[in-house]
Design a protein around this nucleic acid. Structure first.
Lengths: 337, 337
DNA sequence: CTGAAAGCGCTAACAT
DNA sequence: ATGTTAGCGCTTTCAG
């Protein structure tokens, strides 16, 4: 394995011109079978590895996709990333990762850099304020896919899950267990998933003839500390709920902290339901009952979709909706009176 | 913001040659202040963004570092990644991410691709079998840093934490709480961190006049299911340990499952001590007492070190050792007899 | 079917 | 101080 073997080295070794080598690499035209074989042998022997930069600069594909995530270190992002990564690897694509740490201002800049030759396409997870640059990407006809889109534009290819139905199912489950006062720790009001989940909750209440009580809905922002406070507020209500539906697992962890703080037991004194099913959901004790989003699959499918767009940039806008699923574990319990 | 503004467009707009533009971008030579300003204005006005590919092809820096991680979706990798990312961003570096999923064979291939022009340096987290390509990297004088090195080579720049001391401190803590029979769920015997931690455990026992009992040491491979089984084995011992030291938090979660399976309470019936302090450690209830590795800091410092090597490839090999720290939460308790 | 040549956007000599 | 030129490694015309 020598240092920096180029296409020219291969050409020399195989006794052909270097454009012929390019042809066999890219399978872009017919090459004499004999020569083709010689080239392949030479590549193998010299340990040729393509220089992706040069390739992409010359107008080919860079074989790299960019991915913008809000943060790392939590199961949500991690699991989606795994899905993306699996599909990328399977298609000989590399992944370039950017973290915005929820800082709005960074997104446009990153998107700019990423689309300047570096990448063939872009995956955006939970973008904070995509309006600014999504249109520009679209204008350039630059391939991108949004995962868990938090806005409502109709022109962006998107992979989401059935937030509303999931919340509906979760709430219904609690109702069927006999709960009548169900606390709801909501996400931030600006994101569509939060709004959808709240809607699902309300739908379910209504469908079962329960009235919506504003007091029972407290914002948790998909954040543990915020949700801890939200939990406390719900628990300290004059008429305490018998169940709390936290709309993300992280949020549920915060609520669980609050429950313990108040010296209550789960699920004996109160039932807790989460949303997402990140890996940690089954690590805690008792294991968290939650509405599962197919995170890994969302990542995988988004990458697949992006690959399609890279292949065919003018394909019509797709919107893939994956199903959520109630995962019953140990934090919810039937009301017995 | 037009489409694909190049250095030439800027040059034309500013009325200078395009090498002058390059000069002001890279601050590589003195430029007439007047012209410099015109160039800067033109860049701003046209929305110029550098094409990193071209830059790196032409011999400059790509401003990208590659990072190889065993997996994603767990707090260990995620936290380190955050540290790396923070330092990278602060230095206007991008990060290219590769996941090996613990598959040995992939590593060399990835390393090849990454070092073929694409990146200025490489960060390796917990490499499985680095011997194969580390020497080659070194031979090329290609900058790289290993985080949490699992081997024992002396020529690779490395960032690690005080595994042995950490295990020593943890064990000592348990002994000081009055524990005499302390189970130990070890990592895999092939990794240096696992070996170091076991050594720390033995050292502490010896220092306190306790004998080493082979029965109390069970392999858990830093893996939850394996550690669950390990926990069961320890709990079912004729003379059950009063405390179990799991050498990773993930491992501790497995042991905790086992404890619950046997109907025991933590910390009343048995004390549990982890290692790492991943974010989830404080999410569980009771919150996990654990030996903290400064994961975020390890990532940050590794990236910093890498930047140094990129600047000065011939700098001598550094080995940075960061301190672990015992984080006392709620899973360990004094023995009262 | 294949070689020669142009050029992707940029940096770094080399001139001036 | 600044313009000109030669590549970096590759893809893609364009001739033959």
């Amino acid at each position: 394995m020598s240092i920096n073997v180029t296409i020219k080295d291969v050409a020399r070794a195989a006794g052909v011109s270097y454009s012929t080598v390019s042809r066999v690499i890219n399978n872009t035209a017919n090459v004499d079978e004999n020569k083709r074989q010689r080239v392949i042998d030479a590549m193998k022997q010299l340990g040729y590895v393509a220089n992706l930069q040069a390739r992409s600069l010359a107008g080919g594909r860079s074989q790299v996709v960019g991915m913008l995530v809000p943060d790392l270190g939590n199961g949500y992002t991690g699991t989606i990333l795994q899905g993306v990564n699996a599909e990328a690897t399977a298609n000989e694509y590399e992944m370039m990762l950017y973290t915005t740490h929820h800082r709005k201002v960074k997104e446009p800049l990153y998107v700019q850099t990423l689309t300047r030759g570096m990448t063939d396409g872009l995956l955006l997870l939970l973008p904070v304020d995509p309006g600014a640059y999504l249109e520009s990407l679209r204008g350039k006809n630059f391939p991108y896919v949004v995962i868990d889109h938090q806005g409502f534009d109709t022109f962006s290819p998107t992979v989401v899950s059935t937030n509303r139905q999931g919340a509906y199912d979760g709430t219904t489950y609690l109702i069927e267990l006999g709960h009548r006062r169900i606390g709801f720790v909501s996400g931030s009001n600006h994101t569509s998933s939060a709004i959808e989940r709240l809607r699902g909750y309300r739908d379910a209440l209504e469908a079962h003839g329960l009235s919506y009580d504003e007091q029972l809905v407290v914002p948790g922002n998909f954040d543990q500390p915020d949700s801890y406070r939200a939990g406390l507020r719900l628990l300290d209500l004059p008429e305490r709920p018998t169940a709390i539906f936290a709309t993300s697992d992280i949020s549920a962890f915060g609520v669980i902290d609050a429950v313990h703080e108040r010296g209550l037991r789960i699920p004996d004194d109160i039932s807790i339901l989460g949303f997402d099913d990140i890996p940690q959901a089954e690590w805690i004790n008792p294991a968290l009952t939650t509405v599962r989003q197919p995170l890994y699959e969302m990542g995988r499918r988004a990458m697949k979709m992006l690959l399609d767009y890279i292949e065919e940039p003018d394909a019509p806008t797709q919107r893939l909706v994956l199903s959520t699923e109630l995962v019953i574990r140990a934090t919810c319990r039937r009301i017995t009176d």
